[in-house]
């Protein structure tokens, strides 16, 4: 997301906000839950960008991940299951001056809210969307999700789930007007921060999938990836993310990827082993729906009045004075 000029000016004269200015309450996620990593990264981003808390709106659906806004000392809208995106779109359309973030789970986004997800990509409204993909329904206690690996034993698939997992990255990359897709894994905080930061700076619908561990219901799912750094593929590019020397020492499996190359992005996106981390795709040229619709345009009373009068004129039957009372 880019920032309007007047915000920048105000910020120059304003005090810096410490981290605590963005923190609210004690997260009620399980210990070790990957959602904590996202929260830490987002709060850090807000501090580093020195965002004014009242200009931030975090919108979410329902699920463990969707509790996110409660832990931000900003404006937040914890909505209903699956509908975070259309709520966020309404917020953005009414208030293009707000920075809008969306936190959504894999059930929230890819199942009940799937239709909204596809259309949100197409609208390409300027917002940062974090998909907390823990590959399971957490809040409702372990049911299969669209991103669960085939064979997952869950409470609704006690003998193993029947279908192959949906890949949110390839789906997103297949939709018209896709403008930003990135991925990170919760156990590499530096990467989580870096992709969310890049998403924030992108003007458009920035879709970030965080591979999120759910120690409560899928405690071992990502063990092999944690143990073997070769199973992680860091995407690097001068136009992408630069990783610290420390990280580069651990993760040797790196590849240059130009985020403007959508074909390569789709190939990379389809891999889970190794799991790609970094910016897969970015296109700054896609127009934002709120700009196309000229949202936030000033709307003086005079404009409403003259517009209404002009419309009423179309339908008005005027009395003509000379003929008044002509008929009996």
């Amino acid at each position: 997301m880019s920032m309007p000029m007047h915000d920048c000016l105000i910020r120059m004269v304003e005090d810096d906000h410490p981290l605590e200015d963005y923190q609210s309450g004690i997260p009620r996620w399980c210990s070790g839950c990957g959602d904590n990593a996202v929260l830490a990264a987002v709060q850090r981003l807000c501090r580093d960008e020195n965002l004014r808390p009242e200009k931030l709106a975090f919108v979410s659906g329902i699920g463990c991940a969707s509790r996110f806004p409660h832990y931000m000392r900003t404006y937040g809208f914890h909505g209903i299951h699956g509908r975070a995106l259309p709520i966020a779109e309404g917020v953005k359309m009414a208030r293009p001056d707000l920075h809008v973030f969306v936190n959504t789970g894999d059930g929230d986004c890819c199942s009940i809210g799937a239709a909204h997800w596809l259309h949100a990509i197409r609208y390409n409204m300027n917002m940062t969307v974090v998909l907390h993909d823990n590959h399971v329904y957490g809040l409702t206690k372990k049911q299969v999700s669209p991103t669960s690996p085939k064979g997952l034993r869950s409470n609704t698939t006690p003998h193993g789930s029947y279908l192959d997992a949906m890949n949110p990255l390839t789906v997103t990359l297949g939709v018209t007007n896709v403008s930003f897709v990135a991925q990170a894994v919760d156990w590499i905080p530096e990467a989580v921060y870096a992709v969310i930061r890049a998403a924030y700076h992108h003007k458009g619908f920035s879709f970030v999938r965080i591979i999120q561990r759910c120690p409560e219901f899928l405690p071992t799912m990502w063990e092999p990836w944690l143990r073997d750094p070769e199973k992680t593929l860091l995407l690097e590019h001068e136009d992408g993310i630069a990783y610290s020397a420390g990280l580069q020492r651990i993760y040797k499996n790196r590849q240059a990827h130009d985020p403007s190359d959508i074909h390569r992005a789709r190939e990379i996106a389809s891999s889970i082993d190794p799991v790609p981390v970094g910016i897969l795709y970015r296109d700054e040229s896609v127009p934002c729906y709120e700009d196309v619709r000229e949202a936030g345009k000033p709307r003086p009373i005079e404009m409403v009045k003259s517009g209404l009068e002009a419309e009423l004129d179309k339908f008005t039957v005027w009395p003509d004075a000379d003929e008044t009372g002509r008929t009996a």
Partner: peptide
């Protein structure tokens, strides 16, 4: 919107903000 659920929640988001 893409459906009535989206239409209503979009309106709610707009009203909220």
């Amino acid at each position: 919107a893409e459906d009535e659920i989206a239409a209503c929640t979009f309106a709610i988001g707009a009203s909220y903000a």
